[in-house]
């Protein structure tokens, strides 16, 4: 168990290093950073002096080494636009993003799991068809369009909810639904399949033959085992949720990392882009680690050597 966790932590380190390297390569691909820093009519002498002062005149490998050394210490340089440390700017906006992603995930679980269970228990009936059709639809609607439609209906037509900004629970509702719908649909489909599979299994038949009540069989036996694939998907969906958050934040003017990084990309503010790529990678790698460890508690058959 301990050895497994240590190995997985090493993998997290590899992933973060890989992400940092990718971010460095991207900056190299994007052309001369001086073009972003100096006015185009700067004289060659000024350009060279500036280049030397930033260490950009050194060989690429040396620059890479310096970059990694600084990155390990949490230094990704200063934002080209605000002169504040890039990492600080990204981390400052992380709570808002995590709040949105967490709310989206909660919405997805609260809607998706019961929907999946209901569908499985009404196998072959119209209710199942209805729930599963909705789930398929939910997986087909792009988050940015759903966001616009929610704004249109609840913000502009009915005028019941705020359509942008941050600060109150009301502000969270529309972005949460926009972001969580796809995941809710994915969870509903998976829960249905999982529960159906467990209901067919031997131990459920045994429990039934021993006189366990229908509801007890579902809740005490089948649901618990169906939870394993659902937890996997929740882990995998966090990537989707954070991806979706980038767009959702933009639509609802949510002050998170996603919106911030898109603005940074359009302004070619690469220290900020680099810092956020690394932060996202570290976050997701940790989440996946936690998901894998949580199997240990969900499924006693799983033993990590």
């Amino acid at each position: 168990m301990l050895a497994y966790v240590v190995r997985r932590l090493l993998l997290v380190a590899v992933v973060v290093w890989g992400a940092a390297t990718l971010a460095f390569v991207l900056l190299q691909l994007s052309g001369d950073p001086l073009n972003l820093l100096l006015p185009l009519d700067a004289t060659p002498e000024v350009r060279e002096r500036y280049r030397a002062s930033l260490g950009l005149d050194r060989p690429v490998l040396v620059q890479y080494g310096v970059y990694l050394l600084n990155a390990v210490q949490g230094d990704f340089g200063t934002s080209l636009r605000s002169a504040a440390p890039a990492l600080g700017l990204v981390l400052e906006r992380m709570p808002a993003s995590l709040l949105l992603a967490g709310a989206g995930l909660l919405f997805a679980v609260v809607i998706g799991v019961p929907a999946g269970v209901v569908a499985a228990l009404h196998r072959g009936k119209p209710l199942e068809l209805g729930v599963m059709s909705l789930a398929l639809l939910g997986q087909s609607i792009p988050v940015f369009w759903l966001g616009l439609m929610l704004i249109l209906v609840f913000g502009l037509q009915l005028r019941v909810l705020p359509i942008s900004g941050y600060g109150s629970a009301q502000h969270l509702i529309l972005p949460m639904i926009a972001l969580g719908t796809f995941t809710a649909a994915a969870i509903a489909r998976l829960t249905r399949n999982g529960v159906l599979q467990e209901l067919r299994s031997d131990y459920v038949r045994t429990a039934r033959s021993k006189g366990a009540h229908g509801r007890r069989v579902v809740y005490a036996h089948a649901l618990r085992n169906a939870a394993i694939p659902v937890v996997t998907v929740i882990g995998l969906q966090l990537g989707t949720l954070l991806s979706g958050a980038v767009i959702t934040e933009t639509i609802f003017a949510w002050p998170g990392v996603g919106r911030f990084v898109l603005i940074a990309v359009s302004q070619r503010d690469f220290p900020v882009v680099q810092a956020s790529v690394v932060v996202f990678a570290a976050l997701l790698a940790f989440v996946n680690l936690i998901v894998d460890i949580s199997y240990l508690f969900l499924d006693p058959r799983v033993r990590y050597a």
Binding site: L11, V14, V15, G239, V246, V273, A285
Partner: peptide, 22 residues
């Protein structure tokens, strides 16, 4: 491991960052 690295980045962020660079 390369696949792991890539999967630990939000897809849209990755794509946007690459397109911004290229």
């Amino acid at each position: 491991r390369l696949a792991d690295v890539q999967l630990s980045m939000p897809f849209i962020l990755l794509v946007v960052a690459i397109i911004a660079a290229l």
